[in-house]
Amino acid sequence: MKVLVPIKRVIDYNVKVRVKADNSNVDLANVKMAINPFCEIAVEEAVRLKEAGIATEVIAVSIGNKSCQEQLRTALALGADRAIQIETDESLDSINIAKLLQKIVEEEQPQLVILGKQSIDSDNNQTGQMLAALTGMAQGTFASAVSIDGDKVNVTREVDSGLQTLALTLPAIVTTDLRLNEPRYASLPNIMKAKRKPLVVKAAADFGIDLTPRTNLIKVTPPAERKAGIIVESIDELVEKLKNEAKVIS
């Protein structure tokens, strides 16, 4: 079966973002970018399905300007077979991203679509669920285990109260949580090989979808700073401060 893995180029998870002085947005100039960590887990899961003989082809897709080809090459180096870039210079709302991905699903007819549950920039946690709704597929979000069982996929989900396992009819959507797997590092030969794997570019405007923005970003501000704390020298001093200064224990 074919597995489609939509991925996103985001700020590197180790970088603390700064807000622009004019509060128009965050400042991403000269900031290190990377594949969204949850998307990397999605690629890894798809590649493992291929290595297990379950998936026949793994296709990575990303939406953005030319720079997202770098992340598509990362996915190819991790083991994806080919890649699709949907080119746009706009920052699209999730519903419009999901509509573009819906078109790719219609073209490619994958049995499984694996996405990251959330991107670490916009922190929306919605694209996978939206794609599931638009394609009429079942969804297994926040997955920590995925197993294909005939025409179904069993997905174990990380929920607030513990773990929940669902059985979904294929084709289905899975969104990854942190414990699903530990992504491999791309080896140098695989990075070289990835350069020769097919990467097709399609213009977002050619899909015939109305991509009009649904939101208006009014401003972006830094969070409230916490006032500087103090270092206490002993447990006795800590307990005294918590009782008498902070008054949070009695």
Binding site: S94, I95, N125, Q126, Q139, R214
Partner: peptide
């Protein structure tokens, strides 16, 4: 914005053809 709402609400948004404002 707990795991239940995070799970089904974006589906509602897509079925209504709107984007979701999360969290």
């Amino acid at each position: 914005a707990l795991t239940t709402g995070k799970n089904f609400m974006p589906r509602v948004a897509a079925l209504l053809d709107v984007t979701q404002i999360s969290d």
